[in-house]
Design a protein around this nucleic acid. Structure first.
Lengths: 338, 338
DNA sequence: CTGAAAGCGCTTACAG
DNA sequence: CTGAAAGCGCTTACAG
């Protein structure tokens, strides 16, 4: 096995006949080096296969060009789609993503502390939220946090979410307009604020209208099979519209309706999902759903994060975006208004 | 805004009344420190909220505890499932994953070079392969590479793949046993070796048997909609079994068969997918498919990588694992043999 | 434009 | 067990 000597700026400097400073300047955009020196350095670097050690660089510049991405929900396909898009866009901005996964062994706080040990320049937390104490640690170290799909309450962080209040109202108005009256609401973890908020807004519009009734409000349902099971548990309540907090859940309800109860969709039962996963438009699914402005959310969160990295005094923002209702074949066609 | 002074081992040492060496030793498992010193350091560290800067540490230890993960295919759900599992398992082994995404702007080689600048301890490349030159760079720097789902030809790397040769034969024998005779093969990029190898092995068994015929061999088909379109392009060739290189493609074919051509599956047309995505067992899909030993592949690749990090002389391995055929309802039931 | 020197935050022989 | 000192590979005022 060959002796693999690490190539450093020193070796390049010697070969090019210049100082290490000159080598460093050659690899620092905008630094003052003559074209001639630069060329000598570049050819020496190429010959030796030199690339700067960014770890050593970051020690002195205090910029790691590393963004920590905390993922907690891998079930929903739109979160993995987000991960891809984050990775690509941050790469384009000359950042790398270092991934932290939340699971039984490691919670959000532990993930954040790990990421901070790597001196990340910023942290994006998808679909989860740290405790106030951990957030305070980030403030102390001046590491900005962006929360995706979670509101930042009491913690000093930017948040990018849907406007769930508005969305709940939109859904309620749509439901009433289409003539539905008996609603079943299905969502995941009870504790998630955004889902609660949407539900609250939905309920309020329904109540105020005096025209409909929420016949079931089920929580803790996640994924296709849970959805199918959830329908079984509430079909006797005779809802005419089921609203789900995930397309996968909705597709489970759809399968359950058709296969387990021989219901015709949307005549006997209408279904609305959430997320607009690719599978939702396949074959006979044609699920009516809510499309999230994913790329828009990603862009806004990245823009804020990078701006905040460059300006520590930038105030935190709460960005709420509007979702789009996609009506396919699991809800009845809207009446044309005259 | 508060002055956010970085807390270093120096501050902790002063508060604890010891040297920086003692602080370092306290955070180095197995280092020789008295219980008393350790305790003083720990309470000072807690008070100040100190955690070692792993970037600085890695500069001297030459271990970043960072594993580069190169992702090229985000379409297939089993690759994102892999990403999650890698992240969790590497975290458990005290490594962090730094993610590099291959796309139009950045190819595999560029990704690897970026990762090497971060002094990653090892690189896992999912579903892609570097050029010989770039692989040589890794060898020079002693950075081990593991290829997932790609064979390492001519490059010094470990590879973990399915045994595609065996799988092609299994599929061919199964197809003949079930009585199918006219086969259509659909896969993604032509250049992918594993798919070619599987196809080759399949063809050979069929030819040798003298009993069947490959009526279509289509490449460049990726995802549900492509699959549905591919069926349209070859339905006139009257295949009785379609084999796909991805479940998504297969589900597209399934939808196409039922919805566009009113074919009964599996009576008029049988379909076998690849990957066993969750959606494949939903509702009326019940797709027959190939289940990859994903966790097994991940474990083997991580084990090799970590072993290789600790022992630079460990020889590269080619690990080929056996896939499992899952027969659901898109193929006819096997005859019971007497 | 250029180089010598200091320093980023850590670990680790080395000597005690 | 403990601390002073050297050094990891880099950047950046500073002086020329």
């Amino acid at each position: 096995m060959k002796k693999n000597k690490q190539i450093t700026s020193y070796e390049v400097a010697v070969l090019a006949g210049v100082s290490r400073s000159a080598v460093s300047r050659t690899f620092t955009p905008g630094a003052s080096v003559s074209a001639k020196t630069k060329e000598k350095v570049m050819s020496a670097a190429d010959e030796l296969g030199y690339r700067p050690n960014v770890i050593a660089r970051s020690l002195i510049t205090k910029k790691s060009q590393l963004i920590g991405l905390v993922m907690s929900d891998w079930l929903n396909p739109y979160y993995t789609a987000m991960l891809k898009s984050y990775s690509e866009k941050l790469q384009d901005a000359n950042y790398q993503v270092i991934l932290a996964t939340v699971n039984k062994g490691r919670d959000v706080d532990a993930s954040i502390k790990f990421l901070m040990q790597y001196q990340v320049d910023g942290i994006i937390i998808v679909s989860a939220s740290p405790t106030i104490e951990t957030a305070a640690l980030c403030v102390q170290k001046n590491t900005p946090i962006v929360l995706l799909n979670r509101r930042a309450n009491k913690i000093n962080a930017c948040s990018v979410t849907l406007n769930h209040n508005e969305l709940g109202q939109q859904l309620a108005n749509l439901a009433l307009d289409l003539g539905y009256r008996r609603f079943a609401l299905i969502r995941g973890q009870e504790t998630i604020k955004t889902g609660r908020q949407r539900t609250y807004a939905f309920n309020k519009v329904i109540e105020k209208s005096g025209k409909g009734k929420v016949v079931a409000n089920i929580v803790g349902v996640l994924g296709h099979d849970d959805g199918r099971a959830a329908l079984a548990g509430m079909v006797k309540l005779k809802p005419d519209l089921v609203l789900c907090s995930s397309d996968l859940t909705a597709l489970g309800v759809l399968d359950g309706a058709r296969l387990d109860y021989d219901l015709e969709v949307p005549k006997d039962l209408a279904i609305i999902g959430f997320g607009d996963a690719p599978v939702s438009s396949w074959g006979l699914n044609h699920l009516s759903t809510v499309r999230l402005p994913i790329e828009h959310m990603i862009d806004r969160s990245i823009n804020y994060l990078l701006a905040r990295i460059n300006d520590p005094y930038l105030a935190p923002e709460s960005i709420a975006l509007t979702a789009e209702l996609i009506l396919r074949d699991t809800t009845q066609k809207p009446k044309v208004k005259h």
